[in-house]
Amino acid sequence: MKNNQLFTYLFIALFVESLFLGFFYDAFTSALVIGLPALLVPVYFFKMAPKVMRSLLI
């Protein structure tokens, strides 16, 4: 469970970074279109099947 939280925080941090870079380089729409699905898809899978990733790593 801790690994899922760690990766969730990592994806959130990367999304915030993409928003910052999108604002800085005037590509905010691209940052949202690419960054939001890149954040939501892994977080969705972590929430739906939290033990699957752990069993794959063992």
Rank of each mutant, 00 (worst) to 15 (best):
M1R: 03
M1P: 01
K2Y: 04
K2H: 04
K2A: 06
K2L: 11
N3S: 02
N3W: 04
N3A: 02
N3Y: 05
N4H: 00
N4F: 00
N4G: 03
N4D: 02
Q5N: 03
Q5T: 00
Q5I: 01
L6R: 07
F7G: 00
F7C: 00
F7E: 03
T8F: 03
T8I: 09
T8Q: 04
T8W: 01
Y9T: 02
L10P: 00
F11W: 08
F11M: 04
F11G: 00
F11C: 04
F11V: 00
F11S: 01
I12D: 02
I12L: 15
A13W: 06
L14T: 07
L14P: 00
L14D: 02
L14I: 09
F15P: 02
V16Y: 00
V16F: 04
V16C: 13
E17A: 14
E17V: 08
S18D: 08
S18Q: 12
S18N: 05
S18R: 02
L19Y: 03
F20K: 10
L21R: 08
L21E: 11
L21Y: 08
L21N: 11
G22Q: 12
G22D: 14
G22C: 13
G22A: 14
G22F: 11
F23W: 14
Y25S: 13
Y25Q: 14
Y25K: 12
Y25W: 15
D26I: 13
D26E: 15
A27T: 11
A27I: 03
A27R: 08
F28G: 06
F28I: 15
T29Y: 04
T29R: 08
T29A: 14
T29E: 12
S30A: 11
A31C: 08
L32Y: 05
L32P: 08
V33P: 02
I34H: 05
I34Y: 10
I34T: 13
G35M: 02
G35E: 03
L36G: 09
L36I: 14
P37K: 10
P37F: 09
A38L: 14
L40C: 15
V41Q: 03
V41W: 05
V41E: 03
V41D: 01
P42M: 09
P42Y: 04
V43M: 03
Y44N: 01
F45E: 10
F45K: 09
F46W: 07
F46V: 09
F46S: 06
K47F: 06
M48T: 07
M48S: 08
A49L: 04
A49H: 05
P50K: 07
P50S: 05
P50A: 05
K51F: 07
K51G: 03
V52G: 03
M53Y: 07
L56N: 12
L57N: 10
L57F: 12
I58N: 14
I58A: 13
I58Q: 15
